Computed example of a mutant assay.
Amino acid sequence: MSEYTPIGLGHEATTTTALTHSGNFHVDETLGYVVLHYALAPMGDLRARILNGTSDDCLKFYRSRNPEQIQAADIVFDVGGIYDPTKGRYDHHMKNKPLREDGTPYSAAGLLWKDYGKAAVRNLVRTQVDDATIAAIWQSIDKSLVVPIDQDDNGVAKMGKLSLADIVSACSPPWDTAELHGPEEAKRRETLGFANAATAVASHLVNTIDRVRASLKAMDRVLSAYAAAEDKRILLMDTGMPTEKVIFEHDLPVIYVVSPTGGGQWNVKAVPPERGAFGQRISLPEAWAGLDGANLAKACGVSDAVFAHPARFICGAASREGALTMAKRALEIDAALKQ
């Protein structure tokens, strides 16, 4: 818990002015702006604030290297040579740059996420959740998205092609824009590029936060279903949702997951030997592979059996009871073969 209230997060009624540098832009200051947008003025126009330099909400935003503008801004990030969050300064380019506990240097995005991330998450989560869930979402985004940006921006490790950093870089105009179109048009295209990058980053952040929220919700339901299971090798879910992450993170001995599909069918899916791997802890019976309809029903003894994939990792039935019976019989057949 910080010992100070980050600028703009108190009960101030005045407008907050935020500034980052002009010129070439990267993913860290782009995400930094997006974080401030969702933390301080989520109902404002993210693009118009960049393109027009004006705002009808409580956040104004500028891109400049002008010392007077830097001095006048309430929040300055990725420029200015100062890290002092009590004064709204979030640069990280100094000799004694701010570091994470493990020694990883912060980027501007990381510094702003530390102070404003939870406020942004709270404004983006559209369902009622408690502070512990907000903190868990913040931590997940920090680990999966912000730390890699810190590493990339500080030259510790590249995010790689098709990463968020690469998407932001692709929004920058080519090096010869001024040569071909003149300095004024080059400046206009650079500003437009930052607006496009911020829009892409904002969409990614919004979607990622919502997926993390749903993932935490799924964890509670998976663990509850496992606790209620008669046979801990079969996880019966009343709603389709991601289960593999929870199974491996909690070292659950689940072999098959039984859950409904959107079309009213119920599937049996085999758990892989390792998270994200191909293969199965126990494959579905070989005699079922590639069968469907009446042929499969005859082979497995379940009247409403629908299909069994040739790769033996998934099968299905028309009912909950039918799918559950298929999972139980698959385990019985495996046990018999091992004997």
Score class of each variant (00 low, 15 high):
residue 227 A to H: 12
residue 232 K to Q: 15
residue 233 R to I: 01
residue 235 L to M: 09
residue 236 L to M: 08
residue 236 L to I: 14
residue 237 M to D: 04
residue 237 M to K: 08
residue 238 D to K: 14
residue 240 G to K: 07
residue 241 M to E: 12
residue 242 P to L: 08
residue 243 T to K: 04
residue 244 E to R: 12
residue 245 K to N: 12
residue 246 V to D: 00
residue 247 I to C: 04
residue 248 F to T: 13
residue 249 E to I: 04
residue 250 H to K: 07
residue 250 H to V: 05
residue 250 H to T: 09
residue 250 H to S: 02
residue 251 D to F: 03
residue 254 V to H: 00
residue 258 V to P: 01
residue 261 T to H: 03
residue 267 N to W: 09
residue 268 V to M: 02
residue 269 K to V: 07
residue 269 K to N: 10
residue 270 A to D: 00
residue 271 V to I: 15
residue 271 V to Q: 12
residue 271 V to M: 09
residue 272 P to K: 07
residue 272 P to H: 07
residue 272 P to A: 05
residue 273 P to Y: 01
residue 274 E to G: 06
residue 275 R to P: 01
residue 276 G to Y: 08
residue 277 A to K: 11
residue 278 F to G: 04
residue 280 Q to F: 08
residue 281 R to Y: 02
residue 281 R to T: 06
residue 281 R to K: 13
residue 282 I to M: 07
residue 283 S to I: 00
residue 283 S to D: 15
residue 286 E to R: 12
residue 286 E to M: 09
residue 287 A to F: 03
residue 287 A to C: 04
residue 288 W to T: 04
residue 289 A to E: 04
residue 289 A to F: 09
residue 289 A to L: 03
residue 297 A to H: 14
residue 297 A to P: 15
residue 297 A to V: 15
residue 301 G to K: 14
residue 301 G to E: 12
residue 302 V to L: 10
residue 304 D to Y: 11
residue 304 D to I: 13
residue 306 V to L: 12
residue 306 V to A: 08
residue 306 V to Y: 02
residue 307 F to I: 06
residue 307 F to L: 14
residue 308 A to Q: 01
residue 308 A to N: 13
residue 308 A to T: 05
